[in-house]
C-alpha cells in the first residue's frame, strides 16, 4: 500500500493514518494530549510545558491576505494558543527547491518577522535545506512552538449539557482566498490567517474547549468535540457566519464551506451562563463571531453533530476524501 493524497486532507483517512503512526510510535512518556494539536507535560507543581509541530506545503505560496510564512507562524502559535498556552519561542525550518527566488524567500521571512515582532514571540532556532530542482514544489516550512503555562490556563475543562458553541469569525475565508488565486477569480476575500493571541488571552479562562478549524474545517472540529465527550452537538445553519462572497465561490466550485480550512479562527465551548459575555468580548476582535449551537447531550451512545437547515435536520459528518489539496 502506498500513501494517498487524501491521507493528508484532515479527514477520516488522515485520522486513520495517524492512528497507524501511533501503533508504532508508542512511547509518550509523561506527556498528555499527545493526540491533540499540542501535547503537554508537567514540569513542576505549578507549570506545564506545551509543544506543537507543523508543516506547511501550500499552493500557491502567495495569496490574497498572506503567504506561506504567515501560515507557518500563525498556524503554529494557534495550536498552542487553543490549548491556553502562550508560545515562548518558535523553531523555523525550510526545505527549499533549487532556483527558488531569493526575493520571495525574503518576503516570506519578512512576514514571519512582522508577526514575531507584533506578538513578541521570537524565532529561536531553525534549519535550512535546499533540494535539487524538481524534487519538491518550491518550498516546505516546518515549525515547532514551545510554551509554559499553569494548570489554570490550560483550556481543557469538562463539557456539560447546554454548553454553547461559539465560532470566532466567518468560515472559509482562507480557503476561498487561496482557491480564488488558484483559479484567477477576482474577490475581495482575504485569508483570515492571523495569530489568535489577543482573543484567546481575553477569553481563555472562561471557555472549556477550543480548537482552530484548520484542515477539515468546522465539520472536523465539531466531530472531534463530539467524539471526545460522546456528545450530541446541534448547530443552527442560519447562525453560522459565512460571508456572501465565500458562499458564492464555494457554490461555484461545488465546495462545502463546513469542511474548508480557516487559519485565524477558533471554535470553543462555553458554559451557557458565560456564553453571551464571551461572545461580546470576541465581537470586539471580529464582528462576525457568533454562537452557532449547543451541546445537547453528553455521554451519548451515538455522538454526532446535527445541523439544523432551513428545511430539516441532518448529520454533519467528519469529512473524508480529498477536500481541497494543499491549502495549509
Amino acid at each position: 500500500m502506498n500513501i494517498k493524497l487524501s491521507e493528508g486532507s484532515g479527514g477520516r483517512e488522515m485520522n486513520s493514518l495517524v492512528r497507524d503512526f501511533r501503533k508504532i510510535l508508542k512511547v509518550t512518556g509523561e506527556w498528555k494530549h499527545t493526540d491533540n494539536d499540542a501535547a503537554i507535560v508537567k514540569i513542576n507543581d505549578d507549570e506545564y510545558v506545551c509543544m506543537t509541530s507543523d508543516s506547511f506545503v501550500v499552493d500557491p505560496i502567495f495569496f490574497p491576505g498572506g503567504n506561506i510564512g504567515d501560515l507557518a507562524f500563525c498556524g503554529t502559535v494557534n495550536d498552542l494558543l487553543v490549548m491556553g498556552c502562550y508560545p515562548k519561542g518558535l523553531s523555523l525550518s525550510f526545505v527549499i527547491e533549487e532556483g527558488f527566488p531569493k526575493k520571495d524567500l525574503d518576503k516570506i521571512l519578512e512576514s514571519i518577522q512582522a508577526w514575531s515582532k507584533k506578538t513578541t514571540i521570537p524565532i529561536v532556532t531553525g534549519d535550512t535545506k535546499v533540494m535539487e530542482k524538481g524534487k519538491l514544489d518550491k518550498i516546505i516550512i516546518n515549525t515547532t512552538a514551545v510554551g509554559i503555562c499553569t494548570k489554570e490556563e490550560i483550556i481543557d475543562r469538562e463539557v456539560e449539557r447546554g454548553d454553547k458553541i461559539i465560532l470566532s469569525g466567518g468560515l472559509g475565508e482562507h480557503a476561498v482566498a487561496l482557491l480564488s488565486k488558484r483559479f484567477d477569480y477576482e474577490t475581495s476575500i482575504k485569508s483570515d490567517s492571523a495569530p489568535l493571541v489577543e482573543e484567546l488571552t481575553m477569553v481563555k479562562k472562561q471557555i472549556k474547549q477550543a480548537k482552530d478549524p484548520t484542515r477539515g474545517g468546522l465539520a472536523a472540529t465539531l466531530n472531534e468535540f463530539a467524539s471526545k465527550y460522546n456528545a450530541i452537538i446541534e448547530i443552527d445553519e442560519t447562525s453560522i457566519p459565512i460571508k456572501k462572497e465565500v458562499k458564492s465561490v464555494t457554490k461555484l466550485l461545488g465546495l462545502d464551506p463546513y469542511v474548508l480550512a480557516c487559519e485565524g479562527r477558533f471554535v470553543c465551548t462555553v458554559g451557557k451562563d458565560k456564553a453571551d459575555d464571551v461572545l461580546k468580548e470576541l465581537k470586539v476582535f471580529n464582528k462576525d463571531a457568533a454562537i452557532i449551537g449547543e451541546v445537547k447531550e453528553i455521554k451519548s451512545k451515538k455522538p454526532e453533530v446535527l445541523l439544523l437547515t432551513k428545511i430539516g435536520k441532518r448529520i454533519l459528518h467528519e469529512p473524508s476524501g480529498n477536500i481541497v489539496p494543499r491549502i495549509c
Binding site: 461545488g254 437547515t309 432551513k310 428545511i311 430539516g312 435536520k313 441532518r314
Partner: peptide, 15 residues
C-alpha cells in the same frame, strides 16, 4: 448530481 446534492443536503426527499 448537483441537484441530488441539494436534495440530500436538505433532506428534501423526506419532506
Amino acid at each position: 448530481g448537483g441537484h441530488t446534492n441539494t436534495v440530500m443536503r436538505y433532506g428534501i426527499r423526506d419532506e
